[in-house]
């Protein structure tokens, strides 16, 4: 059943009881929360995702709950739980949905070593995927958000799940995380996008989540074969430039940006080697999303790389 087909009261009830099983292929998350409003954000951001019956196996049992005690009158807080284990640090209550999203990312990154998990945005068109691995501040999420408004399919804005046997990348097509200035940039670029209310004062500044495009959600089970690895670099007022990047440097970048490269050992080393071999490795400097749209069209047309 699609989450949007669930009556609000039923969704709320399942969430309260911890019986909301969300299909975030290739995983299933079991969610629990007693925080008012979280069900709304969930229904809105995960529109088109399926919910499963409560007796199915779930990979991660996740809860975001209100903190009890006298403090909660002064400064309401929420805490994340994984498989019943509370996280160390609570966050302000209004950041609960972002906390759920980051918590889910952590669950996947820390426990799913059947994949090499690359900290990267992944988008696809015509059966070929672009991997945008990125250190913080490179504008990866903004670039990814822009491109998925112009016909690219979203696999992920944060976690590329690289299947080392098949060489395919999975994403979950989950909501996109936008920060600070990029929130307004994307609103201006694509006025129709649906976002959560801004959540100020997080460790990453003001954060919004953005609903993924419906087509990406519909095709979220389709893995894609990576064809390009593009290191994005936002630079104020820069003219767009797509430049070749050495394979060795790209290798090191991917290893550095992988959550579990150290755990994979030799298998991970060989996997990144093959990935870099089969992809065009590039660095893209940009300042405007319209430029990015054109540059990536050129990429697709085979004019670069």
């Amino acid at each position: 059943m699609i989450i949007s087909a669930l009556p609000a009261a039923e969704l709320d009830d399942r969430l309260q009881r911890g019986e909301l099983l969300l299909d975030i292929h290739p995983f299933v998350a079991r969610l629990r929360s007693d925080i008012p409003g979280l069900a709304n954000d969930l229904a809105s951001m995960y529109q088109g995702f399926e919910v499963l019956p409560a007796d199915r196996f779930a990979d991660f049992h996740v809860a975001v709950t209100r903190e009890r005690g006298p403090r909660h009158w002064i400064k309401p807080q929420a805490r994340f739980h994984f498989d019943g284990r509370p996280s160390f640090i609570p966050l302000p209550l209004h950041q609960a949905f972002a906390m759920l999203e980051w918590g889910l990312n952590w669950c996947v990154a820390a426990h799913s070593h059947q994949f090499l998990i690359i900290h990267a945005a992944v988008i696809e068109k015509g059966g070929r995927a672009v991997v945008l691995p990125a250190p913080p501040g490179s504008g990866k999420s903004t670039l990814c958000s822009g491109l998925i408004q112009r016909g690219w399919r979203l696999l992920s804005d944060e976690l590329g799940l690289y299947d080392m046997e098949s060489g395919l990348i999975h994403g979950m097509a989950r909501p996109v995380n936008l920060k600070n200035a990029s929130i307004e940039v994307i609103r201006a670029y694509a006025p129709d996008v649906v976002m959560t209310a801004p959540m100020p004062d997080t460790s990453k500044g003001t954060v919004c989540l953005m609903r993924p495009p419906a087509d990406s959600v519909a095709r979220r089970r389709e893995a894609a074969r990576p064809a390009w690895i593009v290191l994005p670099r936002y630079q104020r007022d820069a003219a767009p430039s797509m430049a070749h990047q050495g394979k060795a440097r790209t290798f090191m970048l991917l290893a550095e940006q992988s959550f579990n490269y150290d755990i994979q050992g030799a298998v991970g080393f060989q996997a990144i080697g093959r990935l870099v071999e089969q992809c065009h490795c590039l660095e893209f400097t940009y300042s405007r999303l319209d430029d990015a749209d054109q540059a990536f069209q050129a990429l697709l047309a085979g004019e670069v790389g």
């Binding site: 994984f82 284990r85 509370p86 996280s87 160390f88 980051w102 952590w106 820390a110 426990h111 959550f259």
Partner: peptide, 14 residues
């Protein structure tokens, strides 16, 4: 001191 229940939700977690 808070009990150490969960490694930080960061890159070195696990």
């Amino acid at each position: 001191k808070l009990p150490k229940l969960e490694p930080g939700l960061g890159k070195d977690a696990g």
